[in-house]
Design a protein around this nucleic acid. Structure first.
Lengths: 222, 222
DNA sequence: CCGCATCCGTTTCGATACTG
DNA sequence: CAGTATCGAAACGGATGCGG
């Protein structure tokens, strides 16, 4: 079957041997949000058809990136989840996401996958603007409420892996952001936000400046 | 024609609309090494056939990631090169490369693309182990000689974009590494290097420790 | 229902040949 | 050197069916 390889002794080629097929990286993105059932994946990936999904899941399983696990007995359902090795693809998704931010001009006819907003918020952050110390940010947005926790930097891994996004806001956040995800995205992209409710940041001056930098546009190319 | 889109308003999906086709990211990797002629690309990408290459180049050109440029009049050749926007894919390639390092166990029947060694050496570095200050490392390897220059960190972009690799060694490097690229790779992967000439690092104790960290294995998962 | 397998028209890919 | 043209072989897009 799908034994199509690039045949180069190169880390990029070897990685793409496992990831380069259509839909595969989108499937990884999907599973980064959390374990999901087959039918959830199907509806979160409109246009991907059952036969393809089954094939990709099998290939990723064979590559050791995805595992299927039966949920505890009462509700004996099957879920698919990333293995530890599969979770090492997080940085790849973040960098692809960052590149893609510039392409998010207009939703057009595209569906807006709200279920990936937690992951999307993480991918929106300017990684190099992450503070050194720990920081907790409450996001109270029109689309929902999340808490963004930045851990102190361990000397390993991609910067954004220090960030966790959890549902609901904690009361003792360092900074509280009110507004909408679309307004955050527009601000991050340096785009005008006509008709969007303005963003309000609340917290100490230093912490607000830090969060402001996280959602600011990249500086123009040198 | 080739207007196959994922149809999701998501940065990952939008990016993969431009990059997700087979061969495309390998082609980007190729052009990250430098501008190349059509025939060079063909021989550096064995298995990619002329019609596909022409199609991909056209698509990348249409996406604004690649430009074709005629060389100055005496040798009027055509070269393909990345645009500024295309060069923003560097971090993507680095993260894909990092993921793929673990898959480089055995060359097997694969070709070994030596021309990408400069890029490969960059991608081999542990980004989070980069020093804050500037650093110059001379690599005197069996496969060739390069200088690795680490610039002081500006507050923008992927860490590895601070590193430049140039051919030939400078005499006043902070650290000199002697050995082979294969030995460096084995060390970085934490793999045994049977029969490989050992690595020798020369420089001040602090600088040697820094370079040692750059080519050390990732710490085991927590 | 959930988790696939089977089937079929269309698109893309793999490979060779041929042209300005 | 820099591509086009062409053609069979896969893979993909789309729908339906079938056993737990």
């Amino acid at each position: 079957m799908g034994e199509r390889r690039y045949g180069q002794y190169c880390p990029v080629a070897r990685a793409l041997d496992q990831l380069g097929d259509r839909w595969t990286l989108l499937l990884v993105r999907e599973l980064l949000v959390g374990p999901q059932r087959y039918s959830d994946l199907l509806e979160h990936l409109p246009g991907m058809w059952s036969n393809l999904l089954a094939g990709r899941l099998r290939a990723l399983e064979a590559a050791g990136l995805v595992a299927r696990r039966p949920l505890p007995p009462p509700a004996s359902r099957l879920v698919y989840e990333l293995t530890d090795r599969g979770r090492e693809l997080e940085p790849v998704i973040y960098e692809v996401s960052r590149f893609g931010l510039d392409l998010l001009d207009d939703p057009g006819d595209d569906v807006v996958p709200l279920h990936l907003l937690p992951l999307g918020l993480k991918g929106m952050l300017r990684a190099e603007a992450l503070p050194d110390g720990p920081l907790v940010v409450a996001l109270v947005l029109d689309e929902g409420t999340w808490t963004l926790s930045v851990a102190a930097p361990p000397p390993t891994g991609h910067p954004l892996t220090r960030v966790r996004v959890t549902p609901e806001a904690v009361p003792d956040a360092d900074v509280t952001v009110r507004g909408s995800a679309m307004a955050l995205l527009a601000r991050r992209r340096g785009a005008a936000a006509p008709g969007l409710s303005p963003l309000v940041l609340d917290g100490s001056a230093a912490d607000v400046a830090t969060v402001d930098a996280l959602f600011s546009p990249d500086p123009a190319a040198a």
